[in-house]
Design a protein around this nucleic acid. Structure first.
Lengths: 228, 228
DNA sequence: ACAATGCTTCGGTTACGATCGAAGTATGAA
DNA sequence: TTCATACTTCGATCGTAACCGAAGCATTGT
């Protein structure tokens, strides 16, 4: 009767509230120290250390020693994908941890989903790219058109370089707040990075939300007009 | 710091081995009674009853009373999708519960993934449909072509009828054994059903594996030739 | 009406794991 | 060397939830 992969193990890893909070914190894409993660989980350093060891043994996290710090990050983007998919599922069932708090609106507007843009702005960007003919959407799949490639090159994104990576260029990712797709994959990552580099937006301290500057917001909205 | 949906709750639900076994058993697509699920989980009826109540409260399961039996099934196909995605993740990390046992080969060859065909045969079917031009694959997305529609109609599948459902027609689903995509969605379901109706294949008792009859296998392989 | 089957509820036990204080190790700075 | 910071390991406590036996409902069959 015991068939297939062991889903209980990773379920249990994600199932502890402290660990779930730490993982959620790491969805911001930045590597964090054990101390920071302890704060995110609302537990002491010793307890966090035990949790982190388990998460690492389960291959959900990877650690990088750097001086006397120990940085933890999600093992790879498949972990981020998994977590976001569970979030989407949980949100669909109304399993929200809290009724919409003060920070929720900012999160819904624009946030980091591991390494790309999600939330209202993330959905808008993808919709707009599809409407402009830069991306072809078939079912759940996304593909960059020749037209879109030149369009992105002119925005300073080296598509050819991205293609060389093993990671898929375009990937749709379901948004837990909007319940619609936004752009993931290496292209999604590159776009978000370019927004940061241009100074259009920056990440906030202890949160996954992305804050746009007034000028950056203007540019973003002009570049990705709303789709009817 | 507490942001976003509560992934810990569903993680915990899936994280218990007994519950995970019951959910895995339900991935076979058939509704099962509490007694059957207790056996699948390796626990007594009382314990199973408590677990089932929790799973139902968490909206992972739906129950249907029928006479003095109580049938449990996955709440909807999004639950199946979630479980399969976790399985894919777990398999990728080598978190297999057992080293490949006697039943593994049959599971790898052909099995039910909630309501459609997975495993080697599932992958072959999709590859073949794509090679024949019946389905367009763009990135991860799948779309039925006009050509494919008539092709399927001639196989006795009423595509127009399927279109009317809210569920997507084509959907790709990542296989944990093959690590490649197979066909899900209402079309995937309809195809598997037709194989059962034609007597090409049948499901096995307490397992998710699908067994083809010699004649059914011949027909299937002829209809979906291997792709280079 | 009575028995049989299928499942739930109750009560009590048990075991596991999350937690933290305290002590130990490693790295860097003074 | 000495101190400070960052983290891990140890040891003990505690709470929760998984578990089962027994009793209680509910439905069906005779």
């Amino acid at each position: 009767m015991k068939e297939g992969p062991d889903i209980a193990q990773i379920g249990a890893l994600i199932g502890d509230p402290a660990r779930a909070n730490m993982l959620t914190a790491l969805m911001g894409g930045k590597a964090l120290t054990a101390t920071e993660l302890a704060a995110a989980g609302g537990i002491t350093l010793q307890t966090a250390s035990a949790h982190l060891a388990k998460l690492e043994a389960g291959q959900l996290l990877a650690q990088r020693k750097q001086g006397r710090h120990r940085y933890f990050a999600l093992a790879d983007d498949s972990v981020g994908k998994l977590l976001e998919s569970i979030m989407g599922f949980a949100a669909g069932r109304g399993h929200l941890r809290h009724r919409p708090g003060p920070k929720e609106p900012a999160l819904r507007k624009a946030r980091i989903c591991y390494d790309h843009l999600a939330g209202d702005y993330g959905v808008r960007m993808l919709d707009s790219l599809v409407a402009q003919g830069a991306i072809d959407a078939v079912g759940d799949g996304l593909a960059l058109t020749a037209d879109g490639e030149s369009q992105l090159q002119s925005m300073g994104i080296d598509v050819r370089d991205l293609r060389s990576s093993r990671r898929p260029l375009c990937r749709s990712c379901l948004d837990w707040s909007e319940r619609r797709a936004h752009l993931a994959g290496s292209l999604g990552k590159a776009l978000l990075s370019s927004f940061f580099e241009k100074g259009w937006a920056h990440r906030t301290a202890g949160s996954r939300s992305v804050v746009f500057s007034p000028e950056g917001e203007r540019q973003f909205l002009a570049l990705f007009p709303a789709v009817s």
